[in-house]
C-alpha cells in the first residue's frame, strides 16, 4: 500500500505546474489518459510516456513519478504474462503492459500536484452536491489523523502482547482485528463529534455556500489549456493519419 500513497498523495510544491489551475491539471491528465488509450504501437506509446516524463520534470516530481513507474511494473508484468499467454504476440502484450504504466502515471501526475483543497474546487466545478464534496473533504482531511490513531492502537495492543508480525497470512489478518475494532469505535465517536461541530457552525444553512478562496483561471492557465488541447488533437491526428499502423 505504501507505494500507492507515495505515488498519489499530494505534497506541497512551488513549480509552475503546481500553480496551474486544478481544472487545467485535470484536463492535461485526462487528455494524457485518453491518448494512452488511442496509442496503437509501442513507438507511439514511447512518445506519450516521454511527454509525461517532460511534464513530470516541469512539475519537479520526476523522482516520485519514477518510483511509481518502477513499482507499477509488478502489475504490468502480470498483465504482460497474461496477455502473452492469450495472444501469443510479444508486441501487443508489451503494449498493454506499458500502457498500464502510462495510465497510472497520467493519473498520479494529477494527484501529486493537486492539493485536496484544489480537488474540492474541481468537484465543485462539476456541480457535485455539497454533501458529497464535504464527505470527500473530511475523508481526506482525516486520513493522517486515522493513520496516527492506527499506529497508537497498534502500539497499545503490542504492549499488551499482541504479535502482529507473527504467523501465516490468515493469522496476520486475524491479528489485525484487535486493531481494527478500536479504530472503528474511535471513528464512530469522532463522527458524532464532527456532526455536533458541523451543526454548531451552521452547516447546511444555505443551499449555495460561499467560499473564501476563488479559483479563477488566469490568462496563463487558459493558454496552457489551449496548448494541451492542441497537442492532443495533433497527436491523435498523427496517430491515425501520419504515423504507420503497426500492431492493432
Amino acid at each position: 500500500m505504501m507505494w500507492l500513497s507515495g505515488g498519489f498523495i499530494f505534497r506541497r510544491g512551488t513549480s509552475v505546474y503546481h500553480r496551474l489551475d486544478p481544472r487545467v491539471k485535470l484536463l492535461i491528465s485526462s487528455l494524457m489518459f485518453v491518448t494512452t488509450l488511442l496509442v496503437r504501437s509501442l513507438y507511439e506509446l514511447a512518445m506519450v510516456i516521454a511527454f509525461m516524463v517532460a511534464v513530470a520534470a516541469v512539475a519537479t516530481v520526476l523522482r516520485r513519478v519514477a518510483r511509481t513507474m518502477a513499482l507499477t511494473f509488478i502489475f504490468s508484468t502480470v498483465i504482460f504474462v497474461l496477455n502473452l499467454i492469450v495472444t501469443k504476440n510479444l508486441e501487443t502484450s508489451a503494449l498493454y503492459a506499458v500502457r498500464f504504466v502510462a495510465i497510472v502515471v497520467s493519473t498520479s501526475l494529477f494527484f501529486i500536484t493537486t492539493s485536496p483543497d484544489e480537488l474540492e474546487q474541481v468537484m465543485k466545478t462539476f456541480r457535485l452536491p455539497r454533501d458529497v464534496v464535504f464527505a470527500f473533504v473530511t475523508a481526506v482531511r482525516f486520513i493522517p489523523v486515522m493513520m496516527l490513531d492506527t499506529l497508537q492502537i497498534m502500539d497499545a495492543q503490542k504492549s499488551r502482547g499482541l504479535e502482529l508480525e507473527k504467523g501465516n497470512i490468515i493469522r496476520r489478518v486475524r491479528n489485525m482485528i484487535p486493531v481494527l475494532i478500536p479504530l472503528v469505535v474511535n471513528s464512530v465517536v469522532r463522527s458524532g463529534e464532527l456532526a455536533e461541530a458541523m451543526e454548531s457552525r451552521a452547516y447546511g444553512a444555505v443551499r449555495r455556500p460561499t467560499s473564501l478562496v476563488e479559483y479563477k483561471a488566469s490568462w496563463a492557465d487558459k493558454v496552457v489549456a489551449f496548448a494541451a488541447v492542441a497537442i492532443f488533437v495533433l497527436t491523435a491526428y498523427s496517430f491515425y493519419f501520419v504515423l504507420p499502423t503497426t500492431v492493432l
Binding site: V137, T138, A197, V206, P209, T210
Partner: peptide, 25 residues
C-alpha cells in the same frame, strides 16, 4: 479541537461557518 477542524488549511477552516451562512467573500 481535532474534531472541529474540517478543512485543509487554517484560513479555510476559520471561514467554514461563514461560508455555510453564505456570507459574501
Amino acid at each position: 479541537p481535532e474534531n472541529q477542524i474540517f478543512m485543509f488549511t487554517v484560513e479555510r477552516d476559520i471561514a467554514f461557518g461563514l461560508e455555510n451562512l453564505g456570507v459574501p467573500r
